Amino acid sequence: MPALGLGVFQSTAEQTADVVTTAIAAGYRLIDTAAAYFNEEQVGEGIRRSGIDREDVFVTTKLWMTDHGRDRTRKAFDASLRRLGLDRLDLYLIHWPEPASWSQTVESWLVLEELLAEGRVRAIGVCNHHPHHLRDLIDAGSVVPAVNQVELHPFFNQPRVRPFNAAHGVITQSWAPIGGGRVYNAGRPDAPHSPLEHPTITGVAERFGKSSAQVVIRWHLQHGLSVIPKSADPQRIAENIDVFDFELSADDVAAIDALGTANRAGGDPEVVDRRLHSVTIDND
């Protein structure tokens, strides 16, 4: 799996195919989507339009909570492949754990193991799983999740999840990696609302002649994380992958690490359920 890819969360159906084609032309080889993003079909169109060989692009999609359970999981997987126009997936993830219906989450994981054994997917994993969720899945099944994709950026750097993942051979992949579109410190108008505005990061960016986003993406990579920044802007898409010609110092990394707080911007996997995310996928 490439360390750096393109996320298409909140990319509209109208723009997604062009975004994917632009990203592939810029050098991206990992595209991350989900059934609940409602743009899988356009992701597939963008890949075909790019002219790239199928084996040269790594495609991830995800199982939504309303499709947990044995039969629904298989049906959802088939529907995602159909929308993408693929006959095999590179990585399939359980989008969220559902603690209130944990047995169904486990059922879905066991189906993912079957799909892996059948060769219909190259790797399987999860999103938004706390260490105890991962431990339960590992104990219930026979395959360790290859990836745990979680909210991770300088303001919320997952100090418990990352070491657990590493100890169990699970790759940590960062969603919302630059903190874009999220509002922090809402009660303090004088404080940075985004990592990209924080003087620690803007100072490093100025010193290297890079953007704040490039510095943050480089921080992820130097921590050994996989990172999937989202953008629909061609210039920013190109900018976000142009991060391999400089290296942050240990002091730079430590200073960015120190910005971490206990405040997440997205949902807490401990309490999230389908009632909080009222999304239903049509898999017929």
Rank of each mutant, 00 (worst) to 15 (best):
T21A: 15
T21W: 06
A23W: 03
I24E: 02
A26I: 07
G27L: 04
Y28M: 06
Y28W: 05
D32E: 04
D32H: 05
T33C: 03
A34D: 01
A34N: 00
A35W: 01
A35R: 02
A36I: 11
F38H: 05
N39I: 01
N39D: 04
E41G: 15
E41R: 15
Q42E: 15
G44W: 11
G51A: 12
R54G: 09
E55W: 06
E55Q: 13
D56T: 01
D56M: 01
D56S: 07
V57M: 10
F58Y: 15
F58K: 10
F58P: 09
V59F: 01
V59P: 00
V59M: 00
T60V: 13
T61I: 03
K62N: 05
K62W: 07
K62L: 04
L63W: 03
W64T: 10
T66P: 08
H68F: 05
H68L: 13
D71V: 09
R72G: 01
R72M: 03
T73R: 13
T73A: 15
T73G: 14
T73I: 12
R74D: 12
K75M: 02
A76E: 03
A79M: 10
R83Q: 09
L84E: 01
D87V: 08
L89F: 08
L91W: 07
Y92F: 15
I94L: 05
I94S: 00
I94E: 02
H95L: 04
H95E: 02
A100S: 15
W102K: 07
S103I: 06
Q104T: 07
T105P: 11
T105L: 08
T105R: 10
T105C: 12
V106L: 02
V106R: 01
E107C: 06
W109Q: 08
W109G: 05
E114P: 06
L115E: 09
A117P: 11
A117K: 15
E118P: 09
G119W: 07
R120I: 09
R120W: 13
V121S: 11
R122Y: 11
A123H: 14
I124H: 02
I124W: 03
I124K: 01
I124C: 04
V126Y: 01
N128R: 13
N128Y: 14
H130K: 14
P131N: 10
P131D: 12
P131T: 08
H132K: 15
H132V: 14
H133A: 15
L134P: 12
A140I: 14
S142L: 06
S142I: 06
P145W: 00
P145V: 00
A146H: 10
E151L: 03
E151D: 11
E151C: 07
L152I: 06
